[in-house]
Design a protein around this nucleic acid. Structure first.
Lengths: 336, 336
DNA sequence: TTTATTTACGAAACCGGTTTCGCATTTCGC
DNA sequence: GCGAAATGCGAAACCGGTTTCGTAAATAAA
C-alpha cells in the first residue's frame, strides 16, 4: 500500500479529514495533533499525490512551455530562465517541442484546455495556418504568456525584444562597414518578430539611400538542407551580397558553412551578422557579430508574469508587454 | 461549467459510466450509442482531464527528465531525442534542472515517489553526497532509466557511451600529434563517466610510456569562473601542457577562451580535444576536434527503454545497458 | 413456452486528496 | 450554574474520471 493520507489516518486513529487539515496547518486542528501527524508523515516520508489534490484544488502545479525547438541556444537558455523561476515557485515545467509545425502545435495546445497545466508559456511556431488554435486556447481562459515569438493579434501578455530596432542596427552596421548589397535571410514569412526584424532592415536601407530589392530578401524554411542550398545559390549569384543578416542563429551558422564550401572569406568577401544567443559566438572562425537576445531574462520575465496571473495578482485581461532590448556584439565577421 | 464527461452524460441522457465506456470504445456499448457520444464529444471539443483518470488508472502520461543543465548541446539534444519518442507515445516530458546540485536533485527525485510521473530519465549530478537519494527512488519502484551519467551502484537500465575508449582515443590522438605533456580537465571527482574517460586517458599514457602525473589531472568544478582561473593557472605554469583533454564541452570552450587571453595559439602552443556535441564545433577558430556523443540517439534509446518498462514489456529487474559509441571528429585544434 | 444467455446500459464504489458541515466537548461570559 | 461561543475532530460530499457489478430487455437454446 502506497503511503496515502488514509494510511496515516488509520495508523494514528484519526479521520482522513483531520490528517489533511493537520498537514495543511489548519486552525481547526490542535497543535498536539498536528505534531503527531507531521511527525508520522515525516517518518514515512509521505509525499502527497499531486494530481489527487489537483482535482479538487484545480491547480496542478505544472506549467507548459511550448517552443519550436530546444537544441537552439535561445530556447534552451530561455527554458533555463523559466525553470529557475518555476523551481522557486514550486512549479513543474513540461516541455513541448513543435518542430516548427503548426499542426503539432495545435494538437499540443488543445490538450491544455482540460487542466493538464495551470498555464502556458508559448513561443509560437511559424506557418501559414494562422493563429486560430492559439486564439482558441486563449479563449478557453488558460493563462497564457508569449515569449519571443508572439501572435500580434492575440491580446495576451508578451515578453519581447526590440526586433525592429535590432534589425535596423544590424543592417546599419553592415552599411557602415561598406556593404551596399545586403541580403536578409528570412526565416518564415509568418512570424511577426521576423517581420519586425525585416522592417528594421528595410528602414535602415531606406535611411541610407539603398534600394530595397526583393531578390535579397531571401525566404528560408525550417529545413536545414533546404536553407543550405538557398544560401548557396544566393552566394553563387552574379551579384553576390556583400553582407548577410541572419534572422536566426541557424541561418547565420549555415552561412558560415556555405562560405567555407564556396571558399568565400568572412568578412572579406561576405560580412555576416546573426541573431544568436550562443555563448561561443566569439570563438567562431571568424568570431560572429551577433544581435544577442537576453534569453535567460526573457524566460524569467515570462514565467514571472505567468505566476502573477496564476496567483491572482493579475487578470488575464490586464495584459502586460515587456520589451527587453537585445545587445549588438560587434566582432570579426563584420570586419574591423 | 467545464466540459466533463458528466456534462456529456446529462446532455445526452446517458449515465456517466456509459459515456466513459463509449469514449473508451468498450464492447459493452452499442455502436449507435458510441456514435452519438463521439459525435457530441467532438462537437464540444471534449478533452478528458488527464489527472482525473490518472488517479484511477495510476498512469499520468508524464515522464520526468532530470538533467544537470539544459543550455548544453549534449543535454538539449538528448532532450530532443527523448521528446521525439515521448510525443509519438503520447507522453508528456517534464524537465528538471539540477544545476549540478545534489541537494536539489534529491528534493526533485523525492517528489516522484508519489505518482507525479510514470517514470524517470536521469542524468545524475555530480557531488559528494553519494547516490542514496537515487537509490531510494529506485527502491520505491518508480521506473528509472539512466542516460549518460549513471550511478554504477544502482541496478537500473542505462544508456551510455564508450567513455573509457573515448578517453583513450582522445589522449592517444594527442600523443600521436606529438604531445608529451597532456592535461586532463576533469569535471567533478564523483562522476563515473568522467572517471571512465580519465581511466582511458591514463591507459593511453601508460601504453605510450608516458608517466601519469597528478598535477596534470586537473579537477574542475561546475562553476565557470572557477574553472576559468584553474585552466588559466594551468596554462601559465612553467611546464605548460601541450595537449588538453576537455572532459566536457564547457571545459573545451573555456580552454579556447583562456588561450585567447594568454595569446596561446591552438594548435601550435596547445592542442585541444573536447567531449562535445555541438553542431558547430567545425566552425570554431580553430575548428575543434571532438569526441561527439550520439546525444539524440541516446535520448531516444533511453526513452524507448523507459516506455518498454511502462508498457510492461520489461520488468525493472530485467535491466538493460545500451552502449552507443561516440565518434571522434579530428579537426584543426589537434593540428593537421 | 420456458429457461439460459447475451446485449446494453446504469448505479455506485473508487482513486487520493480537499472542503463543507455537523456535532460533542470544552471554555467563557454573566 | 446556565446558555453561548469557541475548540477539535469526524462523516460525507466532491473533484472527474474508470471500473465493477447488477439488471432489464432482447435473443437464443431447449
Amino acid at each position: 500500500m502506497a503511503i496515502t493520507i488514509r494510511k496515516i489516518a488509520n495508523d494514528l486513529g484519526l479521520a482522513v479529514s483531520t490528517v489533511s487539515k493537520a498537514l495543511g496547518d489548519s486552525y481547526e486542528i490542535s497543535d498536539e495533533t498536528k505534531k503527531r501527524v507531521l511527525a508520522y508523515a515525516k517518518k514515512l516520508d509521505y509525499v502527497p499525490n499531486a494530481y489527487a489534490s489537483s482535482l479538487k484544488k484545480r491547480r496542478t502545479g505544472n506549467i507548459a512551455v511550448v517552443v519550436p525547438e530546444v537544441a537552439d541556444s535561445y530556447f534552451s537558455t530561455a527554458i533555463n530562465g523559466i525553470e529557475a523561476v518555476a523551481q522557486v515557485k514550486g512549479y513543474h515545467v513540461i516541455i513541448y517541442i513543435t518542430h516548427e509545425d503548426q499542426i503539432k502545435e495545435q494538437s499540443i495546445l488543445r490538450q491544455f484546455k482540460s487542466g493538464r497545466v495551470d498555464g502556458v508559456l508559448l513561443s509560437a511556431s511559424s506557418g501559414k495556418s494562422g493563429t486560430g488554435h492559439v486564439r482558441e486556447l486563449f479563449a478557453s481562459r488558460v493563462p497564457l504568456v508569449f515569449f519571443d515569438r508572439a501572435c500580434e493579434d492575440i491580446e495576451a501578455s508578451k515578453v519581447l525584444t526590440n526586433d525592429f530596432e535590432s534589425g535596423y542596427r544590424a543592417t546599419d552596421l553592415l552599411i557602415k562597414k561598406g556593404c551596399e548589397i545586403i541580403a536578409f535571410l528570412r526565416m518564415s514569412e509568418n512570424l511577426d518578430i521576423i517581420q519586425d526584424r525585416l522592417d528594421g532592415y528595410k528602414q535602415a536601407l531606406k535611411d541610407n539611400g539603398i534600394k530595397i530589392a526583393k531578390e535579397y530578401i531571401v525566404s528560408c524554411s525550417s529545413q536545414d538542407a533546404q536553407n543550405h542550398s538557398i544560401i548557396k545559390k544566393l552566394l553563387k549569384s552574379a551579384h553576390r551580397p556583400q553582407g548577410l543578416v541572419g534572422s536566426t542563429e541557424k541561418l547565420a551558422t549555415l552561412s558560415y558553412i556555405v562560405c567555407n564550401e564556396l571558399g568565400l572569406s568572412i568578412p572579406r568577401h561576405v560580412k555576416v551578422i546573426g541573431f544568436s544567443s550562443m555563448g561561443i559566438a566569439s570563438l567562431l572562425n571568424p568570431s560572429l557579430t551577433t544581435i544577442t537576445q537576453p534569453a535567460f531574462e526573457m524566460g524569467k520575465a515570462a514565467a514571472t508574469i505567468l505566476f502573477k496571473i496564476l496567483n491572482g495578482k493579475k487578470t488575464d485581461k490586464e495584459r502586460e508587454t515587456i520589451v527587453i532590448p537585445s545587445t549588438l556584439y560587434e566582432r570579426d565577421s563584420t570586419g574591423r
